[in-house]
Design a protein around this nucleic acid. Structure first.
Length: 421
DNA sequence: TCTGGGGTCCTAGGACCC
DNA sequence: TCTGGGGTCCTAGGACCC
């Protein structure tokens, strides 16, 4: 059996932990640059607010309905996620952290009768230790555990748990799951299935495998079999190193100045370096890209450049140098730029780097410098030490007008409590 | 003023190898 | 007369996930 623990309305729940006034009220969290809705409380969902709704179009609606609005605060959500995951890890034999708010649990070799009781204990403990409410689905495959989890959240909100361990349990959950809510069915496949009169997960399980293979390829066949109770996806205990790492942002305001865009690209390259060193990897392909705003009726320009490095590296200094060389090659003056990014690929473990024959770069010095830089930034806060070309300007930064405090990651922003005696 | 930012896997087709 | 048969690697594009 697999379990799937999923945090309820995770970003909203994080905000509520530190702000009791939000309890029972409609709350939404916005995307970067305060663009659109990416998380909603149940009350906000009940008001008809949808994922992806544009924030500026809903201002009056928010005001009228007392909707509490927050910019996204990833320092807070990431740290709360760590706490939730660590709490779960203490209580189960094995788990796979699947996303910022979800984890699969290994219930292998555990008696079925005990699972629901264990799941209840997990829910209670996570809530007590972190303040975050979770729902748990239990089933013979990952895909069915997802179905069970959704069923628990939708139809048994007070219990918060649903276990599939008979055909009857499975059918009850499957018939209540529209195809678009199945793990692996997105917008396109949902439309296709509906056109063939398949509307819920139970109807999908009755489809012919060859037909599914033809329409949805092997991924679809795996999904079908998982829904029928046959395991196709195992639990992945170890986080696998990423094959590509990308850091990109839309700017708070359009930018025309090459100097400001240079600072932004250098900063993205620095973040790529940090992420690379964190997973103990090096890489040798740097990809830089630059966009104008496609939603605007003005001259458009998009370009990107791929650069090969002579030797794989994780040095921020080197990655920035190549990223900026790429930027120089694609930058054209006279456009209003809205977004840029740096991607890195050709990733290898840091202990398997092939040294270049004609490489003259003093690699040991960089390695030492990066180690010192990472350690200082870890202890003193991000960007305590950075590369000069990243600059000090904030011109390109995100717009985040309604961000809550970093309650758990910055001393200056701890929660304050007033006591009357 | 105004539309997120990361990732994964699979397939098809072309270039190339012997 | 008659046009091989195995492969690999790379890229672009399309589907999906949160």
């Amino acid at each position: 059996m697999f379990g799937l623990v999923d945090c309820n309305n995770f970003y909203v729940s994080c905000e509520r932990v530190f702000n009791a006034k939000l309890e029972g009220k409609p709350v939404v969290v916005l995307s970067n640059n305060d663009g659109c809705l990416i998380a909603r409380s149940n009350e906000a969902k009940a008001l008809g607010l949808k994922m992806g709704d544009l924030a500026f179009e809903k201002e009056a609606f928010f005001e009228k309905n007392g909707v509490q609005v927050f910019s996204s605060n990833y320092a807070l959500y990431g740290d709360m996620s760590d706490r939730v995951m660590k709490t779960i890890a203490q209580m189960v034999p094995g788990m796979e952290v699947y996303s910022i708010d979800e984890a699969f649990i290994d219930f292998h070799n555990m008696p079925y009768e005990d699972l629901e009781a264990l799941a209840q204990r997990i829910r209670k403990t996570v809530k007590q230790y972190t303040g975050i409410p979770v729902s748990i689905g239990i089933a013979p495959t990952k895909t069915l555990a997802k179905v069970a989890n959704r069923y628990a959240k939708k139809h048994l909100p007070h219990l918060g748990i649903y276990q599939i361990d008979s055909d009857h349990d499975a059918e009850k959950a499957l018939v209540n799951t529209p195809v678009e809510d199945i793990w692996g069915v997105g917008y396109k496949y949902a439309k296709m299935l509906n056109a063939h009169h398949i509307f819920n997960a139970l109807e999908l399980t009755q489809a012919k495998e060859e037909w599914i293979r033809q329409k949805m390829h092997v991924v679809g066949v795996r999904m079908l079999r998982e829904l029928q109770g046959e395991i196709c996806y195992q639990l992945d205990n170890e986080p696998t190193p990423k094959k590509g790492i990308c850091v990109s942002r839309s700017f708070g305001h359009s930018q025309r100045d090459v100097k400001i865009i240079t600072e932004a690209v250098a900063t993205f390259a620095a973040r790529v370096g940090e992420k690379l060193r964190k997973q103990k990897s090096c890489a040798h392909i740097v990809h830089v890209f630059l966009y104008t705003n496609p939603h605007k009726d003005e001259p458009q320009y998009f370009n990107s450049k791929v650069l090969q490095l002579p030797t794989s590296t994780s040095s921020t200094i080197e990655i920035i140098r190549y990223a900026l060389r790429g930027l120089e090659l694609i930058f054209k003056p006279g456009f209003n730029y809205k977004k840029a990014g740096v991607m890195i690929s050709g990733i290898v473990p840091e202990n398997q780097v092939q040294i270049g024959l004609f490489d003259t770069h003093k690699r040991e010095i960089d390695t030492k410098a990066m180690k010192a830089l990472d350690e200082l930034n870890r202890r003193m806060g991000r960007d305590t030490v950075k590369i000069a070309v990243q600059g000090f300007g904030r011109d390109w930064q995100l717009r985040q007008e309604r961000k809550s405090r970093c309650y758990t990651t910055r001393w200056q922003e701890l929660l304050e409590v007033e006591a009357w005696g």
